[in-house]
Design a protein around this nucleic acid. Structure first.
Lengths: 228, 228
DNA sequence: CAATGATGTTGACACTGCAAACATGGATGC
DNA sequence: GCATCCATGTTTGCAGTGTCAACATCATTG
């Protein structure tokens, strides 16, 4: 499975570092032409290798995408782990925004992580684990808030689901607005809300998060003191 | 279920009503095997016609999916138009839930409507129009609430975006929970939140909507009197 | 220095979307 | 009644795909 013990530097064998090249080319390709027409053969062509060379590194087309998504989840988890827990309300806010910001900053990976491209996670151990880590962090942040009384008493899992649903939805809107604004609707997530609404939300995802927190926090007045 | 009438929509030439048959077979196929491996040729085979016969009815594979999505948006718009506007708070609640319930009841179409399958709506006039209608209705409902003072003063478009983001996210969770529960990983929307959280939200989307409304409504005590 | 196993290549198969030319037969005008 | 038209369905064909199997290469290691 793992084949990275040859040299700590990339150079080795015929191509040099085909695996890495494929991942990067794949990203670029998705960013510029979407995920639909993406083909392993095209990636191989672009990398200057034979059509089936990628199969030495990825079991299937699916596996390549999954690897990219796994990278994404690990990065997202890291960024969510970076928020401080000392102030639960601030942590809630930061955690939500870090999610949205990750999406905005990594549209392609986010697309792979949460889109329907990969479909079934089962069979991709690392992917499942990395995704689980992200969610666990959100859960932890909310649990801390419930424990401290900064959040109104609530069912943890329902609360988590609700928060996740909103944040995920906001991320999608932000991404869509961004994609359309960049004049190349390369990634075509979320067509439905008209551009104005998407832009309105994308311009201030903080306010959208606050709208939800307003109803969840024990003392809404605290929301005014949050650092953005 | 049988079509022996020669209405304005379907004609009865060689096949009988290929267009309709294709739409139905397509739905069934997506429901049972997902959207990834779906091929026009397979549909044609299943319908007992030649591999390229579908092209007499749909310009492309894309167009077939788009037609299905358009149907979906029209149905959703109808169900959102069916909510009474006399009580703005109740209307908000009903509208949100009717969205979620439509998703739960029509997973395949919802998938096509809001998933990434169709990608670019441009070029599909009817699709765009139908989707716009849905959003317009949500906007209208919220506008009424703002006008009447039942909702706290807010920016309409941001508010719309926020509500839409939550509702859309909830619908996705509900769908995912449902798909997993039915043991058929048929539609693979939203893998990330663990099953428990999905189930928790799916079991009571009303409460999730209420969590948001809590922060948006001028008089939260009114929420206790809502009819479910 | 030879053996080994990871890496890349060639060739092949079944499948896809889609276009163009062709065939069929119900609807329509005379 | 008959000829015609045109929507519907067929055949043929091309370019492209994912993936497998057999083969070639070459850095690393015993």
């Amino acid at each position: 499975m793992n084949a990275s013990q040859h040299g700590d530097d990339g150079r080795s064998y015929h191509h040099g570092d085909l695996r890495k090249t494929l991942l990067e080319t794949c990203c670029a390709h998705i960013a510029s032409q979407g995920t639909e027409g993406l083909s392993l053969r095209a990636l191989a062509r672009e990398a200057g290798v034979s059509p089936t060379a990628p199969y030495r590194h990825f079991d299937s087309r699916h596996a390549l995408l999954a690897a990219l998504a796994t990278e994404g989840f690990e990065e997202l988890a890291a960024s969510m782990r970076a928020v401080a827990l000392d102030d639960p309300v601030q942590a809630f806010f930061d955690c939500a925004l870090s999610y949205i910001r990750y999406a905005a900053g990594n549209p392609v990976k986010y697309h792979l992580m949460f889109g329907e491209v990969i479909g079934d996670f089962s069979g991709h151990e690392e992917l499942t684990a990395a995704a689980g880590d992200c969610y666990a962090r959100l859960e932890q942040v909310l649990q801390v808030g419930l424990d401290s009384g900064d959040l109104r008493p609530d069912n943890l899992e329902e609360l988590c689901g609700t928060v996740w649903a909103l944040v995920h939805g906001l991320a999608g809107l932000t991404l869509a607005a961004q994609a359309k604004a960049s004049s190349k609707p390369i990634e075509d997530i979320m067509q439905v809300p008209p551009l104005r609404a998407q832009q309105a939300v994308a311009a201030a995802p903080e306010r959208a998060v606050l709208r939800l927190m307003e109803g969840l926090v024990a003392d809404p007045s605290r929301l005014h003191g949050l650092k953005h």
